[in-house]
Amino acid sequence: MNTVEMKQVSKKMDDFSINKLSFTVPKGYITGFIGPNGSGKTSTIRMMMDVWKADQGEIKVFGQDMDTKAKQRIGFVYDDLYMYENFTIDKMRSFIAPLYDTWDPTLFWKYQSKFGLPTTKKLKKFSKGMKMKCSLLFALSHNPEFIIMDEPTAGLDPVFRRELIDLLQELMTDENRTIFFSTHITTDLDQIADYIVFIKNGGIVFQKSMEEIKETFHIVKGKNEDLDPDIQKMFEGIRQTDQGFSGLFTGNLSLFDGFEDRVLIEKATLEDIMYFMLKR
């Protein structure tokens, strides 16, 4: 069962286009949505949330078109706090809470206390970290089945990024919960993601589980003198320095058996994959 299904979704904008995007967000897992800046992550999320209409294709959330009933089950976290800056948390709560059928005041106060957010301070006086916590507070207080996060860690310090990751892991103890986490900071996802969707120039490069990724993608490091044109073609992407080369390899590792100690093979991180695939 998938929480989101996107099939052949296309949208043309003035200076950018999404081309026949197809991927799924499996229910009960954390799916990371990675890609460089300007690759179409936010545009895709906007179409998913029905903020933008796709020109072509089909988007199903909970097996249906996005509507207000579906949004009741979704918690949304942006890269910034797009709320009324002159409101306090108390005021925002009085506006937001009645909109959700499943709003849980106990949960709200639990997170408010956990995040240490002041309820009577104007939102414009919040720091970047506090703004993100505030966004999370409102996104989580109605017990959403599906949490969409668009670059939530952008501009945050490592301490809060780690706290956020811990919180997401805690949230995933509910097996019915699904998280879709868009980021270009891939180290956040190495720890928590179950699936990865990689987008580049408005098109999907791949969708794989983390297990598949760990089995498929490897970094091969060696000396430049071992790198002839035939070997170069075997790599998805390659980087050469005076000290040697390193490349992203997705094939059968037994090909390097003859190299013995002259090559070093490691599992590729998401950052490695993104780097080499974008460099290609």
Partner: peptide, 18 residues
């Protein structure tokens, strides 16, 4: 003015409101 400055419509559109 406040809504447009802070792009509040992004948030409003994520709420269960048409």
């Amino acid at each position: 003015a406040d809504e447009n400055k802070n792009k509040v419509h992004y948030y409003l559109l994520s709420l269960p409101i048409g």
